[in-house]
Design a protein around this nucleic acid. Sequence first.
DNA 1: TGAAGGTGTGAATCATGATTCACTTGTTGG
DNA 2: CCAACAAGTGAATCATGATTCACACCTTCA
Lengths: 199, 199
Amino acid sequence: MAYRETDLVRQRKVAQKSGLLHTAEALVREGGFGALTIQAVAEGAGVGVGTVYRYFSGKDELATEVFKRATSREVSAVREALNGSGGPAACLAAAAEVFAVRAFAAPKLAWALIAEPVDPAVDIARLQYRKTYTALFETVVQSGIVSGEFAPQSAALSAAALVGAMAESLLGPLDSPACDADTIAALRLFCLRAVGARC
Amino acid sequence: MAYRETDLVRQRKVAQKSGLLHTAEALVREGGFGALTIQAVAEGAGVGVGTVYRYFSGKDELATEVFKRATSREVSAVREALNGSGGPAACLAAAAEVFAVRAFAAPKLAWALIAEPVDPAVDIARLQYRKTYTALFETVVQSGIVSGEFAPQSAALSAAALVGAMAESLLGPLDSPACDADTIAALRLFCLRAVGARC
DNA sequence: TGAAGGTGTGAATCATGATTCACTTGTTGG
DNA sequence: CCAACAAGTGAATCATGATTCACACCTTCA
């Protein structure tokens, strides 16, 4: 033989794949999953459509990977806020703020992650994501209940409702393009009241 | 001339159109807007695809009309609950319950109406719908604030958040297929706490 | 009854976007 | 430099579903 994959090539491949994912996410970020087409990804990355298939078995895989990447970033950010110092109320407030700020920064992306994607393959990933998210909030709510800071309640339902409340209040009225401090403050208060925290 | 549309014909046409809409809604009800194809509507109604086009200029019009019909029914139901006797808190609780029961009865439909439909033409209608819904809740929240029953707050944001909370807590965990009384109770409490009503 | 003016039909055509593949262009190591 | 083996390419092909349209079949009424 006379060919063997060298380190340089391996690096290039990684870079290429990463570039494709980056381009793909940019598309989702500005147009949701509906804007994610192989053609657009190839064009945006400056390669041929066939190349995309060298790195992903099909659209499903690409879409799922984009979803998972974006998702884990969001979840991490919120998780960090939830694990911050301070009691459950402070953590919940911080998490709401993080969620709000990030959603404002990339509304289309947030929407694409939370709302139902067209692709059934992504659906599985999405379900997992929502559960993770909800579970995260459920933990704080639960600890708040235990510590007596929050009212007794169904932590699971409250967690889901909190996620929904944040999503809707931020993404629902698509008219407001700016990251309004008043909106964030109002959202924080809503969340705290909702779990029965003393304000 | 020798032809003029008679009353009988007019009646038939109305019935035909109504039947098509009925079939179309049934499809959405069980598979979301993604399942709404002209082919399926024609087949379900027992007519040819061409016939569908005699009654609707295109898919957009059909989808929009289905959306508007279902929507106005939902809005009416909630509006009625909100306008019931009793104070803001009672009305809000009643509305949440109506919303919950209806969403449980037709989860896919509720999801299709609330979540982003694929079709951009329906989007306009959807935006209108969400606004109507939110406005409805905003009114009660506002009156609750005025009467002192609810805490001072941004009625607009709270209204949107309430809608989101209800939607997510009911549609999010798609695992629970039954209309659980506990869930409804928990949701009602969540909503009341969220607006700062004394429980 | 027959001409006028519908309505019903569904195969044919378009449009969009995913996927393939024969081929071109690197890279590597002898 | 050459043979071996990938990666890159994009026109061609498929798949799905909307839309058209020439034609068949009713209704009406002089």
